[in-house]
Computed example of a mutant assay.
Amino acid sequence: MTIPSNLPTAHPATYSASSAVSPPSGQGEELREAFTQFVGQTLFGQMLSSMRSTVDKPAYFHGGKTEEIFQQQLDQVLVEDITDASADKIADPMFELFNMRRNG
Rank of each mutant, 00 (worst) to 15 (best):
F70T: 07
L74V: 11
L48N: 02
N103Y: 05
V39P: 01
T42G: 10
T54H: 06
A87C: 09
V21H: 13
F38L: 14
G64D: 00
S16E: 08
S22M: 12
E80S: 14
R102Q: 06
E29H: 10
L97S: 14
V77H: 03
D84C: 13
R52N: 07
D56S: 14
I82Q: 02
Y15N: 04
E96T: 15
T83R: 00
L78Y: 04
E30C: 08
N99Q: 15
I69M: 11
D88E: 12
M94T: 01
T83E: 00
I69V: 13
I69D: 03
P24V: 14
F95Q: 00
Y15S: 01
S86K: 13
M1Y: 11
L31I: 06
R102E: 02
S53M: 08
Q72G: 11
D81N: 15
Q76W: 07
T36D: 05
G45H: 03
Q37Y: 07
A17E: 07
M100G: 06
T66V: 11
T54G: 06
G26C: 05
L7D: 05
P8A: 01
P24I: 13
I3L: 11
K89R: 13
S18P: 01
D81M: 15
T36I: 07
K65E: 04
F61A: 09
T54P: 03
N99V: 14
G28R: 04
T66Y: 07
F70N: 02
S18H: 10
L7S: 03
I3S: 11
Q46C: 11
F35R: 02
A91V: 06
L48W: 01
Y60W: 14
P93I: 04
Q71I: 05
Q46A: 14
D88T: 15
T36H: 03
